[in-house]
């Protein structure tokens, strides 16, 4: 009853504040769209090698192009491929081409395949069976750069905005005296924290659904697993953001001081979220990763979206995220003792 009242009030406040609501939903969409456009651009010109190139083809393409290398045999080409001298090569066996790509960078893969297809197109005119076969040294077809770090960013934006907005709204509750007023009513301290978690939780569900659906269905982000698992992880992540935001807001005296937590608490989490290869991070810094919620959420989101895994692979992350939320909630309830002992 009292919690319901608190939930309704929080939702009303969010809906009233159109600009903040817009920020929560459209800012992530805008940034994701921009990243999509930046990283899935096709401006890169690939370096391609040709092995056993038939005379008929040489006549049709300009082999003197600086991006093209000719090889006498496949072994040489493979060596250059391993040392990343070329991005891929085309081998002709009995006039039919097959492509071999280095494959680690999805942007380059796409560009190389596209380039080769364009070049070979004129040959296909009377022989439709000439569709080339594609092999990869690493990675796979169809995967974009955006697909790899998209899940991490999805989690990050939700964390970032929920942290900030929940923190600021609790801070305001404190500075305008409404927190004191709440505590002068029979409202229990755990009810305040729970009300906040559920109120913002409902809103985050809507926010996460819109953003995730946009990323997956409009931006075509890779999605191998279940949509519901994505929502579950994002929701749990937002709980940690929310409870951490509320907790840290008690160390801030105004909105500006709340924003000062971003470079200290929010941004560093990106480094440990798997956006950068964790193995390459200095060892004396690497231990921080397991203490950040985004580390687990990003891992789970990538498992679901890129690898198509289910509950068996993500349940550990789910429980760790839940643990973070519960821990922060308990600390919050204890912190409220400062304002009322009972």
């Amino acid at each position: 009853m009292r919690i319901t009242a608190l939930i309704i009030r929080i939702l009303r406040q969010i809906v009233r504040d159109k600009r903040t609501m817009g920020l929560l939903i459209f800012a992530p969409i805008l940034v994701l769209t921009m990243l999509h456009l930046v990283f899935n651009g096709n401006d890169y010109t690939p370096k391609i090698g040709f092995v056993h190139i038939p005379e008929s083809i040489v006549d049709q393409i300009d082999i003197s192009d600086e991006k093209i290398t000719e090889y006498k045999n496949e072994k040489e080409a493979k060596e250059d491929l391993s040392s990343q001298e070329i991005d891929g090569y085309v081998v002709f066996h009995n006039q039919s081409p097959s492509i071999f790509l280095e494959g680690s960078d999805p942007t380059v893969n796409g560009a190389a395949i596209k380039w080769i297809q364009t070049v070979l197109k004129p040959l296909q005119g009377n022989e439709p069976s000439l569709e080339p076969k594609v092999d990869f040294l690493h990675g796979s077809a169809g995967m974009g750069q955006f697909d790899y770090f998209g899940p991490v960013l999805l989690g990050f934006f939700v964390f970032f905005f929920v942290f900030l907005i929940a923190g600021v709204s609790f801070l305001r509750e404190r500075t305008t005296g409404t927190l004191e007023r709440l505590l002068s009513t029979p409202l229990r301290k755990w009810e305040i924290v729970t009300g906040y978690v559920l109120g913002f939780g409902i809103f985050t569900m809507i926010q996460a659904t819109i953003i995730a659906a946009y990323a997956i269905y409009v931006l075509d982000m890779l999605m191998e697993g279940a949509f519901l698992y994505v929502l579950l992880i994002i929701l749990l992540l937002s709980f940690t953001a929310l409870t951490l935001g509320i907790l840290l807001s008690s160390f801030a005296n105004n909105e500006l001081q709340m924003i000062q937590f971003i470079p200290i608490v929010v941004v560093p989490q990106i480094f440990f979220s798997g956006l950068f290869n964790l193995e390459t991070i200095s060892e004396w810094l690497r231990w921080i990763g397991p203490f950040t919620p985004l580390y687990y959420a990003a891992d789970a989101l990538r498992d679901i979206m890129v690898r198509g895994y289910g509950w068996d692979e993500i349940y550990r992350d789910v429980f760790v995220l839940l643990g973070f939320s519960i821990l922060f909630m308990i600390v919050n309830i204890l912190a409220l003792r400062k304002y009322r002992e009972i």
Partner: peptide, 14 residues
């Protein structure tokens, strides 16, 4: 107990 503090403590958006 009914308590009215010095600050108005109201939700302006509502």
């Amino acid at each position: 107990v009914g308590y009215m503090a010095q600050s108005d403590a109201l939700y302006g958006e509502l």
